[in-house]
């Protein structure tokens, strides 16, 4: 009895320390907040939120190794801790571990969707930002490589032309014509290759008819139209319980995930990273 009593007291004490930490955090006294959370962790090391709250403080102080350590600990306690995946993702991105960071954020997004949209907008924006940066980096690289390939090819063609022209007396006109054609064709081929990184438009069938933006969590409704889940729910709540186009009655349970469109969006984004650019 006395043991259980003291365990409860310890728990209570840890909760008070967490609240102290939260208060310090709101006042941006991150050092004091870390101390409070650390004490809470010492008392009750098995509560994930103490670890994730401390991780957030470390993130504010740009101490990414410590963010990683605390998040890893929280995930060992409960692998479905949304905030641990989220903060770990942010820390990994800061440490240039882009792919791993994005993977953590995607896991957080998945958990957010299960939790009725908790934090999904924030998480999605971080993912989009990271993916866009990743694409931009790759695109710059590819542009540089194409440019240097172009320079080398042009130089080689020119050398070949000069050699041919000196050997083919009397056929200089023909040699020059071939040379110019080759230059033109080279330009065409390289332009074609560069097109892959040119931002264009997201096709309409991958966009939501209300946000007009690329679909993230597409749902299909009985009329066959597909919308962004969060926005359609907002419509049902604010405007009315009807289909935005046909105006026939529609309720929340009639929303069905549209996996085909979701896959199509993912395939499109894989080849067109520029589409992650936030409006």
């Amino acid at each position: 009895m006395s043991y259980r009593g003291s365990a409860a007291a310890t728990k209570r004490q840890a909760e008070i320390l967490k609240q102290t930490g939260n208060l310090c955090f709101t006042k941006e006294r991150f050092g004091a907040a870390i101390d409070a959370y650390t004490e809470a962790i010492t008392l009750c090391p098995n509560v994930p939120i103490y670890w994730t709250n401390r991780a957030l403080c470390h993130l504010k102080r740009n101490d990414y190794t410590k963010v990683e350590n605390d998040c890893t600990k929280a995930l060992q306690l409960d692998s479905n801790t949304l905030k641990a995946h989220y903060l770990l993702g942010l820390a990994l991105l800061q440490r240039q571990q882009h792919s791993l960071g994005i993977k953590e954020l995607e896991k957080a997004l998945e958990l957010g969707r299960i939790a009725k949209g908790y934090m999904v907008e924030v998480i999605w924006q971080e993912i989009a930002k990271a993916k866009y940066a990743q694409w931009e980096h790759g695109a710059t690289n590819r542009t540089c490589r194409l440019q240097s390939l172009k320079d080398v090819c042009e130089k080689a063609l020119k050398e070949k032309y000069l050699r041919d022209a000196s050997e083919a007396e009397g056929f200089v006109d023909e040699t020059e014509k071939v040379h110019l054609e080759q230059l033109e064709y080279l330009k065409e081929v390289l332009n074609k290759a560069a097109e892959a990184d040119m931002p264009t438009e997201v096709p309409d069938h991958l966009c939501c008819g209300i946000t007009l933006d690329i679909l993230r969590d597409p749902v299909i409704i009985p009329s066959g139209a597909t919308y962004e889940r969060a926005v359609l729910l907002e419509h049902l709540e604010k405007v009315g319980k009807w289909d935005p186009i046909t105006r026939t009655p529609l309720s929340e349970h009639q929303l069905v995930p549209n996996f085909a469109i979701k896959e199509a969006v993912q395939a499109f984004l894989k080849d067109n990273g520029w589409a992650y650019k936030l409006g």
Binding site: I210, L212, D213, G279
Partner: peptide, 11 residues
Amino acid sequence: DLSRVQKELMD
């Protein structure tokens, strides 16, 4: 929804 309005203007 600013992003939507911008898209509408362009479109």
